[in-house]
Design a protein around this nucleic acid. Structure first.
Lengths: 187, 187
DNA sequence: GCTAAAAGCTAATGGCGTTAACCAGTCATG
DNA sequence: CATGACTGGTTAACGCCATTAGCTTTTAGC
């Protein structure tokens, strides 16, 4: 009986992909094990349980999101950077709804927590966007939270089919970016 | 053996309260039944399953949120109305995190769906807020989605402890209202 | 090659949602 | 007042899920 050759990273990656495909609710341990060609209990050799797996998926997703946003804003500033960051973030959530869903509700336990590190990197990318605007030092935290609420809310609602009215979602998103840009510029 | 005298409304109300108390994940059928002084299968006489229960809780929550927001904006206009609506919405989510969580991911099936009706009422309340601003007809839908994303995102992140940095959340929320007000006024 | 750790397996447990089948209260009608 | 149907409760059982325990086999280091 040959071995499958798994390791924690492979399990986490497969779990994230599975969550994207079938939704976080249907991403069961048994399904994941089957996907990896292994019996369910074998997963516990690499991951200490579903909560641990979820944490690791969240860290992976936050890191990937930080990479996507950080990469998208390279060489841009001001409105271009804002638009690039927003589009990169939304694209990530739309393409990877399952792993992104894994990030909500996980609170970093320690400063050396991978979740905290990845979360900080994502935050840093948005902070870089703000540097293209004249935001007073005292307003940076608030503006950051505003952007996070705006984009997280939009992406979450879109992923959950929360926009059931008629208007075009793409157009709304562009409108939203312009709105935020104007507001930040007027600070 | 005296009867408990339940009906669907009572089960839904208790389910919503339970979700608020212990969180949606821990709000199990068994717990709800125990809370109502009844055995688990009895719940299925009033509700056709967990999914149905969740739908009904969502409709209840959306209706309550619509009432709260609609009531809060009575007699206000412009910035006052926006602030009142925002605060009422956030207060509702903070006080009833479980039932509000039940609303995400439920898509109305038909036009006579209670979820659609309640969702429409909530949307109407925010539309009334927008009437206090000079928003072009073509921008109403976009502005509505923007406000929904902003407040939904903020409330969701706050409920999930997503704001782990230092700055005061109250202050951030006030800042966010002022930001939206300025932006809408500049349309 | 030998040994020890790592990685897989089977079996079992307990909790959950759900269904089936049954029984007791309630209530309109004769 | 009796009766029968309906309603709202019950117990028993099933299947799925996460998790743990204990065993076996592969792999890696000496």
């Amino acid at each position: 009986m040959p071995r499958a050759g798994l390791d924690p990273a492979a399990v986490v990656a497969a779990g994230a992909a599975l969550a994207d495909e079938v939704g976080p609710a249907n991403a069961t341990m048994g399904l994941l094990a089957a996907r990896l060609g292994v019996r369910t209990p074998s997963l516990y050799k690499h991951v200490s349980g579903q909560q641990d797996l979820n944490r690791r998926i969240a860290a992976l997703a936050l890191g990937e999101a930080a990479d996507a946003v950080g990469g998208a804003i390279q060489g841009c500033a001001g409105r271009d950077a804002l638009a690039a960051a927003a589009r990169a973030f939304r694209a990530f959530v739309v393409e990877h709804p399952g792993r992104y869903a894994a990030t909500i509700g996980v609170e970093p336990s320690g400063p050396d927590d991978p979740v905290a590190a990845a979360s900080g990197r994502l935050l840093g990318a948005f902070t870089a966007v703000l540097r293209g605007y004249d935001v007073a030092e005292a307003d940076v935290d608030h503006a950051l939270r505003m952007l996070r609420s705006l984009f997280h809310g939009f992406a979450t609602l879109e992923a959950a089919d929360g926009f059931q009215w008629s208007a075009d979602v793409e157009e709304s998103f562009a409108w939203l970016i312009a709105f935020a840009d104007r507001g930040l510029r007027a600070l």
